[in-house]
Design a protein around this nucleic acid. Structure first.
Lengths: 220, 220
DNA sequence: ATCTGGTTGTGAAAGAGTTCACAAGCCCGA
DNA sequence: TCGGGCTTGTGAACTCTTTCACAACCAGAT
């Protein structure tokens, strides 16, 4: 139980959303069975995930929806506001600024950066785009906790270097490349193209197996 | 070796990007060691991943950059054009339309759908937004293979139902909710908020352990 | 008080995924 | 032709994650 896996944390996030939903429905208790069904996992998985952090249920009854929701919010740090710096004011960056789910969960984008002189000074939904060189100063001033990188692949590594130098420890990266970070800095990657490629692989594989009954191709 | 794991496929996608890069640099051979270093995995991992599909290397020398690149492209289905339907013409959807990486890897968004009468008929980068009710017909006509769902959470499930009914088997979902699909339909989720929550959890956990030396919180 | 049906929490078993370790193989120079 | 240096491919060991299985427990009916 030493280190909790990313998989567990991700599932907690999902459970949390179900709990919010169930609460609005007025449901008071929920069992691991019900929660499991909503998320395509086993009830044991749900219980194990929760047991990493303590005992929150009542045998015979299940979990209190409201209480479990609050507990998970605390675990995930959703009860507080996180200040987020966004780097990259292209179309993806702009979409992230107006992405409601971020704000709903307490992630407030409070600064936007770009290196394009045409964009610097312009506004995006009320936020003025700053030059990337101002980042260290602004991160300090606003006490920013997290960074989101939405720049082209070629620029991603140098942006991350800047973020690390500015003292940021948590980075969400949208560029489809593995980036170098010193120990102590956590980077998570969101890879939209790579996700599509995983689907495309399955599509190819299923066509293969449909054609010749063999799910595996050894030589191409 | 029966079923290849998602993790392996995802790594192949990453290796592929390195290979493309190395090829432009004029490098002819690459070892599992070098590839591993670029992706923060072990050399054994790289070799195992590749060995799922055959033997592509030369002992003592490594892998031919160009040949391995082509091989992975075939495995992932990147040597062909996939037609993609995008549902949701909000800011995220619009960003996806202009996301270069999709087109670069052979994923062409050929149709855009929305249910908002104000948007239907309008254009996004040359693509006319169609009403969601036209989806089944257009999917057939254009022979679309994949769907990307970029609609608000509340609409996601009904959109997926429509996609499934239209015969699509592969769906990439951006809504932060676990969606129901019948067997035979594969859905992959990209969860930007959930990724941030994982970072936020680590931030909370690291603060905890810094304060009292205990990485675990049992009661809140 | 006792029984019944239902649910949690958790050690143990099973299953996946990763790393190790080494034989087998290639290239090059002597 | 042989030896040294290097790298692949892969069974076996290991580690991490998930599932199983069951004691412990709760509520409400009898």
């Amino acid at each position: 139980m030493n280190r909790i896996s990313d998989a567990t944390i991700t599932r907690l996030s999902r459970y949390y959303r179900s709990l919010v939903h169930l609460e609005t429905q007025g449901q008071e208790m929920v069992s691991s069975k019900e929660l499991a069904k909503r998320h395509k996992v086993t009830p044991a998985q749900v219980r194990k995930d929760l047991s990493c952090f303590g005992q929150f249920g009542t045998r015979g009854l299940g979990y209190s929806v409201c209480q479990l929701k609050e507990t998970i919010a605390h675990i995930l740090g959703l009860h507080r506001i996180w200040k987020v710096a966004l780097v990259g004011a292209g179309s993806l960056g702009s979409a992230l600024i107006s992405y409601k789910e971020f704000k709903r969960q307490g992630f407030h984008i409070v600064a936007v950066f770009d290196n394009d002189p045409h964009k610097v000074g312009k506004k995006r939904r009320g936020l003025t785009i700053s030059d990337i060189t101002k980042l260290p100063k602004i991160v300090k001033e606003l006490d920013i906790n997290l960074a989101v990188v939405a720049v082209p692949t070629t620029a991603a590594q140098s942006v991350v270097d800047i973020l690390v130098k500015a003292g940021l420890k948590m980075i969400l990266n949208f560029a489809p490349e593995t980036l170098k970070t010193p120990p102590g800095v956590t980077i998570r990657n969101v890879n939209m193209a790579i996700e599509l490629e995983a689907l495309s692989y399955r599509l190819v594989a299923s066509e293969m197996s449909r054609l010749d009954g063999k799910p595996k191709l050894s030589s191409i």
